[in-house]
Structures are given as C-alpha cells and as structure tokens.
C-alpha cells in the first residue's frame, strides 16, 4: 500500500527529528566543550537524516496526493497550496500525527539519561538500517546506507559513555541505573510492528534492482520492503546486555512496556516539544524562512 510506505517513511523521519531536536537542547550546555560538540554533532546527523526522509515522504505525498491526503488532517497542513515539502511535514502536522517512538521524545534529564536514550535507540537504528539498506525500495535503501556510517559512530560513542558512567563513580552508576529504570519501558514498542510495518514487512526483504525505483512505487510489490521489527529484537537485546555487563549495570527484569508512539499516542512531552519547535511556522503561515 502506498499509504503504508508513506507512514513508515514519516515514522523513520519523526524518530530522527525528535531525537535530533532533543539532543540539540544540549548545545551550549554540555558537561564540557568536547561533549557539547559531540552531542551537537549527533543532533546534526539526526536532523540531516530526518531531512532526507521527510523529502522522500513529501515526494511520495506529492506523487500520490489522492491516496495520501486523508492521512494528515491538521488544519495548518491542509492550508498548504501546491506541492508540500520537508518543512510542511515537520512543522505543520499536529502532535497526534507524529509516529516517533516514545523513547526519543523523553526529556533529556541528566547526561546519563541522554546517553542511555541515545544508546538504546542507536543500537536499534543500526540493526534497522543494516537491513533496510537491502530494501527493494532504492530510496529507503540509499538513506539507510548513507545514515549507517553516522549511526555506527552514535552506537560506539554512546556505548562507551554507558560503560564509562556505569563503571565510573558510585554516583554515575546510580544515575545510569535510574536512567534505565525510567527509559526501559519505552523500548518494547521498538520491536512491535505497527500496522504499516506489518504490511511492508510481510515478506522477506529481497534485493531487487529494478523494482521500487523512485517514482514507480505503484508498480512495485511493497511487501518485504522493510525488516519486521520483531526480527531485530534478539540481536538488540544481546548488544544492550553485553554493554550493560561491561558497564557493571543490571539488566532490568522483564517489565511492563509502554506502547503508542507509532500509532500517534504519545507521552505528554511531545506536545511541548512541538509547540516550541513549530511556533514560527504556525504563527506566520505561508512564509519563506
């Protein structure tokens, strides 16, 4: 379905944007200059990924407007004349139209929480992109491949910090353990397929050169375009458990997992984030910036 791929592209873009935005809140306030630069750099990578993905989503929307226009109902978005662009998707959708995971919208908290959020997400993103780069959808594959270099660095950087803080001082360990307690419940939904993921993932991904070329998605069978999220879970858990072991941190016992992000049911935090992020575009509609 055209609409599944559109929603999936938005979901990927929203994850990148919201986490990038959160990280950018650190810019100017990091624990030292080097780490201020590092976290800003990750913010920049993620905003860059978001732009590529939103541009692709906008292209899909403009090509298949009839099929897709019902999916976004926010009044501000629907006032856009002519073709939409990346900014319309980022700035004019309402909070109940964002599909990012709950994990990435959680407030920064202290450095431990920020680091852990990055690590949990980047490990997931790495596994996802490693599979997605073989997708029959060549644009998604290209974006995944391009982003992977960055993501590998994010995994390494944040993983090293998890170890350093877990095995640093008593205080840093306590803070890491608290971060785990507050974020773990948001990791479950990463591996539970939303309806659009189910539809796209329901056949094994087969690299195919000719199908799914940009501009011809109608002729392509979309099944198997993206990895099934369940299939990433085990490797993710191993990676996280391995790092926690090195960090002398306890793995949380299986606990209740909060879901909703991919279906647009968010925590309270996202609304505030968007209110701040979107206000200029909303207050001065139809302006060039």
């Amino acid at each position: 379905m055209i609409s599944d791929k559109f929603l999936y592209t938005l979901f990927l873009a929203d994850n990148a944007l919201i986490l990038g935005h959160r990280n950018s809140e650190w810019t100017g306030h990091g624990p030292n200059l080097e780490q201020d630069i590092a976290i800003s750099n990750i913010a920049l990578d993620l905003v860059g990924q978001a732009r590529n993905l939103y541009q692709y989503a906008a292209e899909q929307y403009n090509n298949y407007r009839d099929e897709l226009s019902g999916l976004i109902t926010s009044p501000a978005f629907n006032q856009v004349q002519g073709p939409i662009d990346e900014d319309d998707l980022a700035y004019l959708r309402d909070v109940n139209e964002f599909r990012n995971n709950l994990l990435v919208e959680q407030p920064n908290g202290d450095w431990a929480k920020t680091i852990l959020r990055q690590f949990l997400f980047s490990c997931y993103q790495q596994l996802l992109y490693e599979r997605m780069k073989q997708s029959a959808d060549l644009q998604l594959a290209a974006i995944a491949e391009k982003s992977l270099k960055e993501v590998l660095y994010h995994v390494r950087w944040s993983g090293e910090w998890v170890i350093r803080l877990g095995d640093g001082t008593e205080e840093s360990k306590r803070r890491m353990q608290e971060a785990i307690a507050s974020l773990w419940k948001f990791t479950g939904e990463l591996f539970i397929a939303a309806s659009f993921e189910k539809a796209l993932a329901s056949a094994p991904t087969a690299p195919a050169a000719s199908t799914g070329a940009p501009g011809s998605p109608m002729e392509t069978s979309l099944a198997g375009l993206v990895p099934a999220p369940e299939s990433l879970k085990e490797t993710w858990l191993e990676k996280v458990a391995g790092t926690f072991r090195l960090a002398t941190l306890d793995m949380p016992a299986n606990s209740w997992m909060q879901q909703g992000g991919k279906d647009c049911i968010h925590t309270e935090h996202l609304g505030f984030l968007l209110a701040e992020m979107q206000y200029l575009q909303r207050a001065y509609p139809g302006s060039e910036w």
Binding site: L17, T27, D36, L44, V47, Y54, Y91, M277, Q281, W289
Partner: peptide
C-alpha cells in the same frame, strides 16, 4: 529549538557547534 525550518535548524546547530 525554534528555528523555523529544518535547514535553518541544521545550519544553526552547526554554527553554534
């Protein structure tokens, strides 16, 4: 956090960095 477009947001992060 209030930059009015994604491009402006990215260039501003890069500048401050």
């Amino acid at each position: 956090t209030r930059a009015p477009s994604l491009r402006r947001k990215a260039t501003l992060i890069a500048k401050v960095q």
